[in-house]
Design a protein around this nucleic acid. Structure first.
Length: 419
RNA sequence: GUGGAUGUAGCUCAGUUGGUUAGAGCACCAGGUUGUGGCCCUGGGGGUCGGGGGUUCAAGUCCCCUCAUUCACCCCA
């Protein structure tokens, strides 16, 4: 296409109808579903001081190079938000939510930015829905956010998601596991890929989800053997609660998450139709993330969900409302009359428009057939008698109606059609 | 960031070993029906062949660069 002109920046796109409407429908579905659990919507800014996201972890690619970070004209170091959790945590602290009645339930829905190589279903700007539950360290809380996410996927029409869960331990038991991993992989250092050589020093847990050294990890120590009693009871309870709700979930001992702030529970849910896009949603427990942002220590758990991915995985689009649309066609010399009639109809609550190109009646009805269910034809012989013609475009039937009875007639007609 | 493939009309795509005014289907517009859509028929509009440079008498076609898309890696919210 026109290379001389402007196009969307790499990895970004225009969302056109009807997908734009699908996004809105998903937003409505997500927010109303979350509201049933008591989650209130929070809209954080798209841009934050860069420090907010620095604590995501020193070894994370998001932090290392996949961010939109810039210094603005005033010298401020800013970053386009790559995910929701850190920004919501910042807001939690800023507004003193730790002093509010606990638990605090917040959800968000909006664009996230990440500068990675574009692929199908992977955009530099994508939309995420997420929920964060603060103030409870109970497994009931973990289960709640997972059930919230699974329930949304279910309501959107996607069946049989593949849910995986793991516990990466807590401050009590994780150090020993971490040490065991380091020892295991150090002995096999010559077999590790280049990236894993680095991970071994910086974040040994991530060796487990390396896609290169898959054979090695099979023999790596299982975190299960290192769990303390609290961690063991916690993950067991979470899994029970999910299954009790009727969902399938399996423990995956190789599951660790890309972000460094997680403790105990981590989970990821995918779907076979997504293929390489991997995760539909993912999340976990991040007790104390708020303390890392210079706030109070608060237990928390949450998830983030990729909306574009969810929409692309749906077997059928979300239902579109079939609004009855009225098209006002006009006979020669009655363009203004049609225009005014459409205006009146809109004022009375109808979705109505008229021809703006002074086209032939034939052309007008052709357009009406494309985008309306009812055509009102004004002008000609009937106009002098105070009549208009109402044509049912679906049934190809029409009758003349008194102009001042038109609104009532249409209302009744639309009601009958919907019944 | 690495490697491969692709880029021709709004959309989906043809374009023979380089060779006249670059095509089709769908979509759009008009007419056939001077007051009636969906089907049909006829006609029409719309393209600097992603962009730039090069080779050549001649480039959509060959070469280089660049931009974009896509697939596989990497990574993942």
């Amino acid at each position: 296409m026109a290379a001389e002109g402007f196009q969307t920046a790499r990895g970004t796109r225009d969302v056109l109808w009807p997908e734009s409407w699908q996004m809105e429908a998903m937003r409505d579905l997500a927010l109303s579903w979350a509201a049933r659990f008591g989650y209130t919507l929070i809209e954080t800014p798209i841009v934050e001081k860069s420090g907010v996201f620095l604590r995501l972890g020193e070894t994370t690619d998001i932090v290392q190079h996949e961010r939109y970070r810039f210094v603005d004209a005033g010298g401020e170091d800013l970053t386009l938000r790559p995910e929701g959790t850190a920004a919501v945590a910042r807001a939690f602290i800023q507004h003193g939510f730790a002093e509010a009645p606990q638990p605090v339930r917040l959800c968000y829905f909006g664009p996230m930015f990440r500068r990675e190589r574009p692929e199908a279903g992977r955009y530099r700007q994508h939309t995420q829905f997420g929920a964060e539950l603060y103030g409870s360290d109970s497994p009931l809380a973990d289960a709640e956010v997972i059930l919230l996410a699974l329930g949304l996927v279910d309501m959107a029409g996607l069946k049989q998601p593949e849910a995986r869960i793991n516990s990466i331990g807590c401050q009590v038991c994780r150090p020993a596991y971490r040490q065991a991993l380091i020892e295991f992989f150090s002995q096999r250092q010559d077999q590790l890929c280049a990236d894993c050589q680095v991970r071994l020093r910086q974040n040994p847990l991530r060796l487990l989800d390396c896609k290169v050294d898959v054979a090695l990890r099979e023999d790596a120590p299982d975190v299960q053997a290192f769990w303390c009693d609290d961690c063991r009871n916690h993950i067991t309870a979470v899994i029970d609660l999910i299954r009790e709700a009727g969902y399938r979930i399996e423990r995956d001992r190789h599951l660790v998450r890309g972000l460094d702030y997680y403790t105990r529970t981590v989970f990821e849910v995918g779907h076979p139709t997504l293929g390489r896009q991997v995760a539909l949603f993912g999340g976990g427990r991040y007790d104390g993330l708020t303390a890392g942002l210079n706030g109070p220590w608060v237990p928390a758990v949450g998830f983030g969900m990729g909306i574009e991915r969810l929409l692309s995985a749906l077997p059928a689009p979300l239902p579109m409302p079939v609004a009855a649309r009225v098209y006002v066609a006009h006979l020669p010399h009655f363009e203004r009359e049609g225009y005014r009639l459409a205006r009146d109809l809109r004022a009375q609550g109808f979705a109505a428009d008229s021809d703006l190109l002074d086209r032939s009646l034939k052309a007008q009805l052709k357009e009406a057939g494309r985008r309306a269910t009812i055509a009102v034809i004004v002008g000609g012989r009937e106009w002098a008698d105070g009549l208009v013609t109402v044509r049912d475009l679906g049934r190809a039937e029409q009758e003349t109606v008194e102009r001042d009875q038109l609104a009532n007639y249409l209302r009744q007609k639309i009601q009958e059609d919907q019944a």
